Computed example of a mutant assay.
Amino acid sequence: MIKKTLYFGNPVYLSLRNAQLVIKLPEVVKNDTLPDGFKQQSEVTKPIEDLGVVVLDNKQITITSGVLEALLENNCAIITCDSKSMPVGLMLPLYGNTTQNERFRQQLDASLPLTKQLWQQTIRIKIENQAAVLKKCAGEEVKCMAIWAADVKSGDSDNLEARAAAYYWKNLFKIERFTRDREGIPPNNLLNYGYAILRAVVARGLVASGLLPTLGIHHHNRYNAYCLADDIMEPYRPYVDELVYKILQEEINCDELTKGLKAQLLTIPTLEVVISGKRSPLMVAVGQSTASLYKCFSGELRRIIYPEM
């Protein structure tokens, strides 16, 4: 079943009743002139089990502990946003698999040659997907990207990821003064938001597969709690890039992240991808990737299953 993404950008009361998320508006609840029957009819309920990502983007949102517990028990990722409406926090369950201790040990015991090979596969698919985006969106010649993808060595010792990225960003968004930088000019703001949603989806998938999102196969920043999520999301980034490119073609002002722009970016978990020769929503595909990663750690597989554009 495809999990839903809920976004809350206005003041709202979120509570739990009969395994349902109950959504109430403060102005309705506090208005004593309204009849109780109308207040009950104005409530909206959503089954907790249907939710995969919840985004909280308002300082006046009230959410009960019961809702948080129920969401986490159902492996739902909860994203909180800062005053600029950018994702700033991510809440995930402490456990997501019945054999989690065993899986942690296998992940921790992964050999250096194995992690280097997994990173090689990851970067190779990422560059191939970037090349596909360039060809589809910008109509650019991508022979050099294909060569770089084929030449990626174990652990990407030649750092072909960076070389491909420089070529990719230069040719995808032909905007004066644009460089890929978190603090850079638009559409960096759209990319930042999209990647944050993608990161939450991948972290959720890792927890569901019984893996530690903190322990990466390549990223090892001591201050980063989601190194493995940042690793596994790499081949999925081009899907976000393609979506942002399409948004820009609509000639919408992207200087500010409006609710309309966020609504388009929040479709990322349901984007259609092709994985193992079959069409699948991105969130479901991520689950296949994280499950295959565990099998690599356990010795059942030698390759991570990634989507190909």
Rank of each mutant, 00 (worst) to 15 (best):
G66Y: 13
S83Y: 14
V55I: 15
P35H: 09
P35E: 12
I79N: 02
N74T: 05
V55M: 13
I78Y: 11
Q60G: 01
Q60A: 08
L56E: 00
I79G: 00
K39A: 02
T80S: 12
C81M: 04
I63S: 04
V44L: 13
I78V: 15
I61F: 03
D50H: 07
I79P: 00
V53T: 14
T45N: 06
K59R: 10
S65V: 11
C76T: 14
K46L: 05
Q60C: 06
P35I: 14
V54L: 15
E73V: 02
Q40F: 09
N74Q: 08
D50E: 14
I63E: 12
G52P: 09
T80F: 15
I79C: 01
V55G: 03
K59D: 12
E69I: 03
I79S: 00
K39C: 02
E49C: 05
E73H: 08
A70D: 04
G66W: 14
E73K: 12
I48E: 01
C76G: 02
I61S: 01
P47G: 04
E69C: 04
I78C: 07
G66E: 13
V54Y: 10
E43A: 07
Q40C: 01
D57A: 13
I61D: 03
I79E: 01
T62D: 05
N58Q: 05
C76P: 03
L56Q: 02
K59V: 10
P47Y: 15
D50T: 04
S42L: 13
F38Y: 15
N75D: 14
T33V: 07
N58L: 07
S65Q: 09
L34V: 06
T62P: 00
I61P: 01
E69M: 10
T33K: 11
V55N: 06
V44R: 12
I48K: 00
D36L: 13
K46C: 03
A77R: 01
C76E: 05
K39F: 09
Q40P: 00
V53A: 04
N58W: 10
C76N: 02
E69S: 13
C81P: 01
Q60V: 06
G37D: 12
C76A: 06
D36H: 07
V53H: 08
L68I: 15
P47I: 12
N75K: 15
E43L: 10
P35R: 10
C81V: 00
N74A: 07
I48W: 05
E43G: 00
V53Y: 14
E69Y: 14
V44T: 12
C76R: 01
I78G: 03
D82C: 05
L34I: 07
T33Q: 09
A70T: 04
Q40R: 09
S83T: 12
S83W: 14
